[in-house]
Design a protein around this nucleic acid. Structure first.
Lengths: 202, 202
DNA sequence: TCATCAATCTTGTCATTGTCAAGATAACAA
DNA sequence: TTGTTATCTTGACAATGACAAGATTGATGA
């Protein structure tokens, strides 16, 4: 017990919450246990987050930002890629990020949590969606599924990537599928989502 | 208040739980509220389900069975379809079922719930997986992605269908994507998951 | 018929949890 | 120093899941 003022409680609550979710799932997250773990009174976290839902909303927002960031970083490493190829990079990066951030991804995909979500979350999610939507628009000009609407393609791309990631981070599903991923599987999956027969030009 | 013995409590708890989840999400499900709604003491549901997790596990099991059933029914309507075409029927039926059973699907996809899941759930899930895996095995013989392992194809097919369904049943995501589905969209999505360029023979 | 027994439900209780209110303590600016 | 604000503690409350002990019902078999 150092000082009355903790100094960095807000950030440590976030860290501790993620650790707790990693070990015990969102359901296993308890604000009181977090407080106890950080050596702080049971109501202390409540001064940094309006509610438990508010804490989770912030985690979701951060997470969408991180995932979008990971995608942008990876896109930068492929400056000469076609839009269709960039879609593949997005898909594989998204799946890889989810596998490497299971706790965060499980919160993002939790249907309950986002019921009480706030504008900041919507904005972070919208940013992610826009990133993909832009690439789809450009891929369309390259001849990517010309008969299918952009909206359906967007739904397909994001849904497929997220769903595969979910299956990989969701223990029951993962064991049911009996998956054991090798490193190149991420690219293999991306090649299925965005079929290689779609890029003629190069 | 009719009789001391309710007569059909177990089933009505299940029904009421689904209704409650439909309106307020899994998080909004309370055994005590269910009890109150059914005009029964607060501990009565506990005599039919070992725990809340046990109730949810039963819902998941039922749901996988129903979804698999819906797929089998639909497959029966296409007796002369190739394995590749059957994969498409499975995908579109799966997505449609999820949209038509949002509450059940949200429970199935809830990462928390299935932590404490039981053998019956695994069996129901394994049944579903086997149904798809079989079709993939047969499609493979028709020349379906010959270079890709069955395990990866299985992960892709189930992940993509479930992910698209999730995006459609998950309000925040749905509004972020701005989707408004027309009836033929289910087949359109299935055509994206199992690209039409995959069937040469016919 | 009636005694027994299992199935079903009620009542009472407990620990955990999220949330709020009121007050204590620290940090800091004037 | 004094006043102000941010931060934390203590105390309380209601909701909830879970359990134990006992009440009620209904069926079975002697």
């Amino acid at each position: 017990m150092a000082t009355y003022h903790h100094g960095n409680l807000r950030q440590e609550v976030l860290n501790c919450a993620i650790a707790m979710i990693t070990d015990h799932g969102v359901e296993g997250l308890s604000l009181r246990k977090v407080a106890k773990e950080l050596g702080v009174s049971h109501a202390a976290p409540g001064h940094h987050f309006k509610s438990k839902a508010d804490l989770l909303a912030e985690i979701i927002q951060e997470s969408y930002e991180q995932m979008t960031g990971a995608i942008l970083v990876e896109l930068d490493r492929h400056p000469s890629a076609t839009a269709t190829q960039r879609l593949r990079v997005m898909a594989s990066t998204c799946i890889r990020w989810a596998v490497e951030n299971k706790a965060r991804f499980s919160v993002m995909m939790n249907p309950d949590v986002s019921r009480f979500t706030e504008k900041a979350v919507h904005d972070a999610l919208a940013d992610f969606v826009r990133t993909v939507a832009d690439a789809i628009g450009e891929a369309k000009e390259e001849g990517f599924y010309p008969k299918t609407s952009n909206a359906v393609l967007l739904l397909y791309a994001i849904g497929a990537a997220n769903g595969i990631a979910t299956a990989l981070t969701y223990d029951v599903m993962k064991t049911a599928l009996g998956v054991e991923l090798e490193e190149h599987a991420y690219e293999e999956l991306a090649n299925l989502i965005v079929d290689t027969r779609n890029d003629h030009r190069r």
